[in-house]
């Protein structure tokens, strides 16, 4: 517990809250990197995911591909691109965008696939065009899962930018890597706490967004979660009664 009080002393020290190596500066860098990565990844991944989910085509190619991407070690990919493409923010940015694609693609197509086919058929039969079905029926209903995919990607990106500070980069990971060679455990712990708090806040924020984008009708239906219902049907259900009683 002593190391915690040292870490909090480190965090409370005003000297660590200003300058180019201060907490605000590192936080802004981390948020900037994360935001940029997510933006690029969303621009690429969302159309792909929506196309697969809407048309059902390309699933066989993309699904194994995104699964294989999951096996790629993040640190390895970051270092590979840094060595191959040189210094600067671009190589790790490319690596992180690649790593952020699978969850966003999976969120989009599994979101569209989760939409009841009867709802889609109903929309078609009342005259919605293909684009109308996609934007006014499928996407609104799939929004919680689409945002869920971006939420996963965001957590992954925050974590990987921390690891990527292995390269000469800014961000909160800097505190961890600067503390390691000096065995400065207070700084290591303080930096770790900062990253964890940031990740949990981002997760909470996305949880809130997920709730906000859930269509009202879906939310109403969701309160009766079939999974947690008691197992036996109610007595009012006639099929549960013996034939002569029904």
């Amino acid at each position: 517990m002593n190391s915690y009080s040292q870490a909090f002393d480190w965090l409370a020290d005003p000297a660590h809250w200003s300058g180019a190596d201060g907490i605000p500066q590192r936080l802004i860098e981390h948020l900037g990197y994360t935001g940029l990565t997510l933006l690029v990844a969303i621009v690429i991944a969302l159309p792909v995911g929506l196309y697969i989910g809407h048309t059902g085509r390309g699933r066989e190619i993309v699904v194994p591909f995104t699964g294989a991407l999951r096996a790629l070690p993040t640190l390895g990919l970051v270092i590979l691109l840094a060595l191959g493409l040189g210094i600067g923010i671009l190589p790790p940015l490319i690596a992180l965008v690649i790593l952020a694609l699978p969850p966003i693609i999976a969120g989009a197509y599994s979101g569209l696939e989760s939409v009841d086919r009867e709802v889609v058929d109903a929309a078609r039969s009342v005259g919605f065009t293909g684009a109308g079905v996609l934007w006014r029926v499928e996407v609104p209903l799939a929004m919680p899962l689409i945002v869920g995919g971006i939420r996963s990607a965001c957590l992954q990106v925050i974590a990987t930018w921390t690891v990527a500070a292995f390269l000469p980069l800014g961000g909160l990971g800097r505190f961890l890597y600067d503390a390691l060679p000096d065995q400065d455990y207070a700084k290591l712990l303080a930096g770790s706490i900062l990253v964890i708090v940031l990740a949990l806040l981002a997760d909470g924020l996305f949880a809130l967004i997920q709730r906000l984008v859930t269509p009202r009708g879906v939310r109403a239906g969701r309160t009766a979660d079939i999974r947690t219902k008691t197992q036996s049907p109610t007595r009012k259900d006639p099929s549960w009664l013996a034939p002569e009683e029904a």
């Binding site: 974590a159 964890i196 997760d203």
Partner: peptide, 11 residues
């Protein structure tokens, strides 16, 4: 699951 790995190792 939301906690990043490297900080968790350190914590």
């Amino acid at each position: 699951y939301a906690i990043p790995s490297l900080p968790l190792f350190a914590l």
